[in-house]
Design a protein around this nucleic acid. Structure first.
Lengths: 332, 332
DNA sequence: CTGAAAGCGCTTACAG
DNA sequence: CTGAAAGCGCTTACAG
């Protein structure tokens, strides 16, 4: 392993000078510098990063803490984030372990920024503690504003409203929402009231308690005669969408021939999987990633004062594909 | 940043003793040790890897280099690897960036082991070079044996043979393989010959050149009368499987009522997505992960001599689910 | 059982 | 422009 001392000896200078020459520091005669560089190249010198890092603790690295078992959406966001971060000159590392352990891992590795996808599971006390001992910047996806870190939230209410608006525009007036999330339900209710949609017994199909029972209600709904059943459905997530598609198949209901469908979550890859391209609404991974990177590269000059932590709400995107039809198609 | 000196001061001992206590070195009174550990925990001490690495100790970190846009299978392998590695005391970080950059990132972060999922794309010259300057251990998934690193390969030939054997056992004699991979085709041919399966024009449906044309051939095959068309299909990957399922739907073919199907790749999560549980064959992510960890933890005592790099071939697993039926079902 | 000391390879004031 | 020295946080002989 060749060190700057070896180079210094060969060049007949001190290793201090070698360090400066190799790092492009001023105060080295051009001649000396080029001689040193030549020797370094000849010797195939590789700087010891551990030594360097011991002195200056910068790493230009971002650590991502992602929930495990997280499904396609977060995987795609991860990929997208990595791509954009690399372009901005950061290296990205990810940990799927438990959050407290992940913070420690990242501290060991000198990441200077931690980005978390927040879930109900990752705020146990140990995480809080580990987080406090981390002195870098943090950004939390999926979180309400905080005085301690940057936050990015998703406007789920707006997303569902967009879905309802789209369906209403097509003439639908009897619409059901399938899902638990309160923000989404609020959005659904709000739009429904605003647009004076029909109030029918299957408006909200999920009881908050028991999920298998909830799906039974969906199945029952699908069996109703055309005049009573909704003309359009909005589902919570792509997971729920697949479940619904199965139920439809069993019940011999076709989408969109018999009923329209909008799904929350936009996962382009799914087009390859489903029989038909699904109309979706949700935040685009590109937007989420760039929102985060915008915040992060805005603070090159160290962590901001407390009041400067930023909050961004990412708007959803409605992508109309093949599963929504105008109401006239259902009127025959 | 809390260091062993801080701990030493609080404990009223020298930092040498702290180091020994924390590293489980012998020669520290049990009482002293537990006191030191307690303080370290209270202070949320995180060892400085750079310093440790500088005196050439291990960082117990594994860096994964994964192809981006890699799909569900590799994501699940990643999750599984992380879980098993954490249990074995390693921390895992992942990079999806270009491999050469990933190696550099990992060197910056002092990982002592790099695990790569090998693809045709990640052996460009820069990667080779970056790899050479990395002085830790490497393990390559999906690679032939090498004198420079550990390797784990997948017995794809065996996998397809298992699929054919299973179908033959059910009485199928006219079987098609849909895919490009040469190992898989070899496996298919071998089993077909051994079992003296019927030689029919649709045995191998893909021309190696053009994929859209290949799928046209599949569509044509599905349109043939029952007496001419194969009774069972084997597809290359879950991606191909979805494509096939779409074609079947269009052509009004039901699986498994009209034709049996085995898919390569075992992705349990897919059961939620497909209408019917698919019979699959392929390596289990658990086995791949544990094969890697077995090799890696077998070499606690520094990198092995060149001739000691190990090669493991992971056997596939046939999981019979709902898409394969005995031939008698097709004989009416 | 405990601690003082050397040293890993580098950067960075500081002095010449 | 150049170099001697201190020090980053840690491990590891070595001496008590």
């Amino acid at each position: 392993m060749v060190t700057i001392k070896d180079i210094a000896q060969m060049a007949g200078v001190s290793f201090t000078t070698v360090s400066k020459a190799l790092n492009g520091e001023p105060g080295v005669r051009a001649e000396t510098r080029s001689k040193i560089i030549a020797i370094a190249n000849k010797l195939n010198y590789v700087p010891n990063l551990a030594a360097r890092r011991l002195v200056d603790r910068k790493s230009d690295s971002i650590g991502l803490i992602w929930p495990s078992k997280s499904g396609l959406f977060l995987y795609q966001l991860f990929e997208q984030f990595q791509i954009q971060a690399e372009q901005a000159g950061y290296s990205v590392i990810v940990s799927l372990g438990n959050p407290a352990a992940a913070v420690r891992t990242f501290m060991k590795h000198f990441v200077d920024t931690i980005v978390v996808w927040s879930t109900t599971e990752n705020s146990p006390p140990e995480f809080i503690q580990a987080r406090e001992s981390f002195q870098g910047t943090m950004l939390m996806f999926n979180s309400a504003p905080s005085p301690y870190y940057h936050t990015i939230s998703i406007d789920r209410q707006e997303a569902i409203q967009q879905a309802v608006d789209h369906l209403a525009m097509l003439g639908h007036r009897r619409i059901s929402f399938i899902g638990y999330n309160t923000d989404k339900i609020t959005g659904f209710d709000q739009s429904a009231r605003l647009l004076q949609l029909e109030d029918h017994p299957d408006r909200l199909l999920f009881t908050p308690k028991n999920s298998s029972e909830s799906w039974n209600r969906v199945a029952d709904m699908l069996r109703k005669p055309k005049s009573q059943r909704p003309t359009a459905l909005i589902v919570d997530s792509y997971i729920a969408m697949f479940k619904l598609l199965k139920l439809c198949k069993i019940g011999n209901m076709r989408i969109p021939e018999d009923i329209s469908l909008v799904a929350y979550d936009d996962i382009p890859e799914l087009e390859e999987i489903t029989d038909i391209a699904v109309t979706t609404v949700g935040p685009a991974v590109e937007h989420l990633a760039s929102a985060a990177l915008d915040i992060l590269s805005g603070l090159q000059n160290g962590p901001p004062a407390e009041e400067e932590y930023r909050h961004v709400k990412v708007a959803p995107q409605l992508v109309v594909r093949g599963t929504t039809r105008p109401i006239s198609d259902y009127m025959m």
